[in-house]
Design a protein around this nucleic acid. Structure first.
Length: 423
DNA sequence: TCTGGGGTCCTAGGACCC
DNA sequence: TCTGGGGTCCTAGGACCC
């Protein structure tokens, strides 16, 4: 038995947390670069602001109704998220942190102690009281059903924010009400293809023969069908799997047309990616660099390209990756385009020390020495206290291309200088 | 003028092996 | 006239998630 705990309007709720004056104000949170709406308070939803819409398309609507916008403040959201998750971890032995605002809980065994809906309500009350964040709880015998139960808890206030789908007949009642695209794992493309087969509701998908679905789609969709029938196919994953790739990329605050600026941006992304890599205690053997113009502009000439390189041996040395990335950039850069975005990707990971080199391999110059390790450790340590204490000259100082964040709220809980003040 | 970022998994098809 | 069968590995692309 699983519970899915999901924070309501998470980013928007975080923004309101230290702003009681905004309790009933419609609020939206924007994506990086202040580009799209990625979260909406319930007031903003009611006014018809759609998820994912570019801000410039709803500017009038926002002005008209006094909708307040915030730039993404990940330092704040990540910290509040951690507090919510540790509250959950204190209440149940098995917790899988699934995303920044939701977690699955293993309920097996807990039934003996109390009713599951009661447990759901207890979670809700405690997080409301301790973190000031409202959550909804869905309870069911499979993760996919727990997701739907949570959806129901969010949709119908009468439920009090907790829905228990233990009972088969309640499951079917809910499934009949929901269109198939509400099911976890069924996106736009699959919805279309399912509809062509006459499958429109979640219940119709649940009642399809698994073999038939396997034949027309894939094992993934087959698993979804089984899960919808209460057969648990997806386990609780408490230990986060080691990453298989690390991407660092950003759209630019303003278009880049100058190669030197692009070198700075790529250097910045390499530096971030390598520091993440060391945090994971991994080494990477594969590097990709990509850049592109805006896919939305119809008057700019489009250009998108990527190049990759294999290192001779896995590494996590920023300097080594910087050098390789600059070589790749030389092969990618074409004068005359207005570049909108670039990024780097590290892949093909190894635990330090396990890679078996080829007989004739030369270790990359400056790659794996003890001195390098000390240098990187020192850099990481300095930057952990205050990010950007120390950086590579190639990352640039002014970073004129860096992302727009014009409506950023304070890092209330993670920066001494930005603590909320009570007067 | 202005449109996010970071991931995972699966499949099909080609290359290659014996 | 008639030209195999079975398998692995890798990659690109597609789909999904939050």
């Amino acid at each position: 038995m699983f519970a899915l705990v999901d924070c309501n309007n998470f980013y928007a709720s975080c923004e309101k947390l230290f702003r009681p004056d905004l309790a009933t104000t419609p609020v939206v949170v924007l994506s990086n670069n202040d580009g799209c709406v990625v979260a909406r308070s319930k007031e903003a939803k009611a006014l018809g602001v759609k998820m994912g819409v570019p801000v410039f398309q709803v500017r009038d609507l926002m002005r008209q109704h006094g909708i307040l916008a915030f730039s993404s403040n990940y330092a704040l959201y990540a910290d509040i998220s951690q507090r919510v998750m540790s509250t959950l971890e204190a209440m149940a032995p098995g917790v899988e942190v699934y995303s920044i605002d939701e977690a699955f809980i293993d309920l097996s065994g807990l039934q003996m102690l109390q009713s599951l809906s009661e447990f759901g309500r207890a979670i809700r009350q405690r997080i409301q009281k301790w973190q000031g964040i409202t959550v909804c709880v869905g309870i069911a015998p499979s993760k996919t059903l727990a997701k739907l139960a949570n959806h129901a808890a969010k949709t119908w206030p009468k439920t009090g924010g907790v829905v228990d789908l233990t009972c088969k007949s309640r499951q079917r009642k809910l499934l009949a009400l929901l269109p198939v695209n509400e099911v976890w794992g069924i996106g736009g493309k699959l919805t279309k293809r399912l509809q062509q087969l006459g499958i429109n509701t979640a219940l119709q998908l649940a009642d399809a023969a698994p073999a038939y679905i396997r034949q027309h789609f894939s094992v993934v969709v087959e698993r979804t069908v089984r899960e919808l029938n209460g057969e648990s196919c997806l386990e609780l994953e408490q230990i986060a799997a080691t990453k298989k790739q690390i991407i660092s990329s950003r759209s630019f605050g303003q278009r880049i047309t100058d190669k030197q600026q692009m070198r700075e941006a790529i250097s910045e992304y390499i530096s971030r990616a390598c520091s993440k890599l060391r945090q994971e205690q991994q080494q990477a053997k594969h590097l990709t660099v990509f850049l592109r113009t805006s896919p939305f502009s119809d008057k700019d000439a489009p250009y998108s390209a990527s190049k990759s390189v294999e290192l001779e041996a896995p590494a996590s040395d920023t300097r080594l990756f910087l050098a390789k990335a600059m070589q790749l950039l030389d092969g990618l850069w074409v004068n005359g385009y207005r570049y909108a975005k670039a990024g780097v990707m590290l892949a093909d990971f190894y635990d330090p020390g396990v890679y078996q080199p080829g007989l004739f391999d030369q270790p990359e110059a400056g790659g794996q020495t003890a001195a390098y390790q000390k240098l990187m450790q020192l850099m990481d340590k300095l930057n952990a206290k205050h990010s950007k204490t120390i950086w590579f000259a190639s990352q640039g100082g002014k970073q004129e291309w860096s992302m727009k964040r014009e409506m950023l709220s304070p890092a209330y809980t993670t920066n001494w200088r930005e603590l909320p003040v009570v007067r």
